[in-house]
C-alpha cells in the first residue's frame, strides 16, 4: 500500500504505468517548437463546431478516445475518468465525456488540473479501486479569453507579463503494471497566496506555490534537486520560472541546471508573440503527453518531477480586488522498475 512520507507526500508501492498518452492541440501550438510531437493539430479554433466551447468538448472527447486507442484498449475497459478544464462548472470536460459512458470525476485545479488528475488516479490504482484509469485536462484560448478577459476582437495590447492560453487536450491512460514510465510518488500542493493581484501576471501568482512544492518534495523524500533528470513546472512562463529559481535560491536550493517550464517549451517567444509563455490546463497536459512522455519513452529522461501549476482565481474574485491563490501538485515519474533505482 501507499506510504505517507514527510508532510505532504505519498510513495506508491504498486507499478502505476503511464501506458499511453494523447495530445490534441490548436493551430498555434502546432506551429510551435513542439509541433512534431503532437498527435493531432486542429485546422481552426472551432474544429467543425459552432462555438469555441463546443469545440473544446469535442477535442476532449476525441483526445480521450485516442489515448484509450493508443493503449490498445477500448473505452469499456476504462474504469474511471478524471478530467477537468477552465470553463465555468467544468463544462469543457463534462460535455466532452457525456457520451463516453464511463464513471467520471470532474476536477478543478485551474491549470494544475492535469497534476490533480494524475495524483488522484494514481491513488485510485494504488488503493486497488481500479486498474485502468483515464486522465485528462483541456483548455481553449478563445473560450478562456471570453470567460476571463475581453472579447477577442477588442483592439488592446497584452502586457509583457501575460501568458497565452494553450488550446488543446492532453490525456493519459494509467494502468496497474504495464510498461514504464511509472508514477512512483506525489506531493500534494497547498494553496500559497503571496498577495499578487495582477491577473496578467499569473506566473508570479503561481511561482510561490511551485517553489513551495519543490522544497516540500525534496524535504519529504530527503533528496536533492539533482535526484531528478528534470524538474518541469506547468505554466509559469518566463517570469514565473525566474521567480521560482530565485525563491528556491533563498532557501539554498539550486534548480537552475535541471529545471524547465511547459509554458516556455510550447511556444517560440520570438516568433509567436506569446509574451511570457503558455498557460491553461492544456499547457502542462499536452506538453507532458507529447514531448516529455516521448523523452521518457526514449530514455532521454529517466526520472522527472512533473509539477502542473494553477492560479485559483475567478473573474469575479479579480474584480473584487482579491489576490490570486496559487497551487501546484508534484508527480514523480520514473522509468526504473521498482527496486531498480
Amino acid at each position: 500500500m501507499a506510504k505517507h512520507i514527510g508532510k505532504q507526500s505519498i510513495k506508491f508501492e504498486k507499478k502505476i504505468s503511464v501506458t499511453s498518452t494523447a495530445s490534441t492541440v490548436g493551430t498555434k501550438e502546432g506551429e510551435g517548437p513542439l509541433g512534431k510531437y503532437f498527435d493531432v493539430i486542429l485546422k481552426d479554433a472551432v474544429d467543425g463546431e459552432t462555438s469555441w466551447e463546443k469545440a473544446e468538448s469535442k477535442i476532449v472527447q476525441d483526445n480521450l478516445n485516442l489515448a484509450v486507442k493508443k493503449a490498445g484498449l477500448s473505452m469499456d475497459d476504462i474504469e474511471y475518468i478524471f478530467s477537468g478544464d477552465l470553463l465555468n462548472q467544468g463544462t469543457g470536460s463534462t460535455y466532452g465525456i457525456r457520451n463516453l459512458n464511463r464513471p467520471f470525476f470532474g476536477l478543478y485545479g485551474a491549470c494544475s488540473t492535469f497534476g490533480e488528475s494524475m495524483c488522484l488516479a494514481s491513488i485510485m490504482i494504488e488503493s486497488g479501486g481500479a486498474s485502468k484509469v483515464l486522465i485528462g485536462a483541456s483548455s481553449h484560448f478563445c473560450a478562456a479569453e471570453k470567460q476571463f478577459r475581453f472579447p477577442l476582437g477588442l483592439g488592446t495590447q497584452r502586457p509583457l507579463t501575460s501568458t497565452w492560453t494553450v488550446t488543446g487536450d492532453g490525456a493519459a491512460v494509467l494502468c496497474k503494471n504495464g510498461n514504464p514510465p511509472y508514477i512512483v510518488g506525489m506531493t500534494t500542493g497547498k494553496i500559497v497566496d503571496f498577495g499578487i493581484t495582477d491577473a496578467n501576471n499569473m506566473g508570479a501568482a503561481m511561482a510561490a506555490a511551485a517553489a513551495d512544492i519543490i522544497m516540500t518534495n525534496l524535504k519529504d523524500f530527503n533528496i536533492s534537486p539533482d535526484y531528478y533528470d528534470l524538474i518541469i513546472t506547468g505554466d509559469l512562463g518566463y517570469v514565473g520560472k525566474e521567480l521560482t529559481i530565485e525563491l528556491l535560491k533563498k532557501e539554498n536550493i539550486d534548480i537552475s541546471n535541471n529545471y524547465t517550464d511547459c509554458g516556455i517549451e510550447i511556444y517560440d517567444k520570438n516568433t509567436q508573440d506569446t509574451h511570457s509563455g503558455g498557460s491553461g490546463c492544456a499547457c502542462s497536459a499536452v506538453t507532458f503527453s507529447s514531448y516529455f512522455y516521448n523523452k521518457m519513452k526514449k530514455g532521454e529522461l529517466n526520472r522527472i518531477l512533473f509539477i502542473p501549476t494553477g492560479a485559483l482565481m475567478s473573474s469575479t474574485s479579480v474584480q473584487q480586488g482579491e489576490s490570486i491563490p496559487g497551487i501546484a501538485h508534484a508527480v514523480i515519474l520514473e522509468n526504473f522498475p521498482k527496486g531498480d533505482s
Binding site: D193, I196, V239
Partner: peptide, 23 residues
C-alpha cells in the same frame, strides 16, 4: 515557504523586478 507579511512584501518587490515593463 514563509508567508509572513514581510516575506509577501519582499516577494512583491521580486515580482516587480522580474516582470518586464511595456516599451
Amino acid at each position: 515557504m514563509d508567508n509572513s507579511a514581510k516575506n509577501k512584501k519582499l516577494y512583491q518587490e521580486m515580482v516587480k523586478k522580474a516582470s518586464p515593463n511595456s516599451h
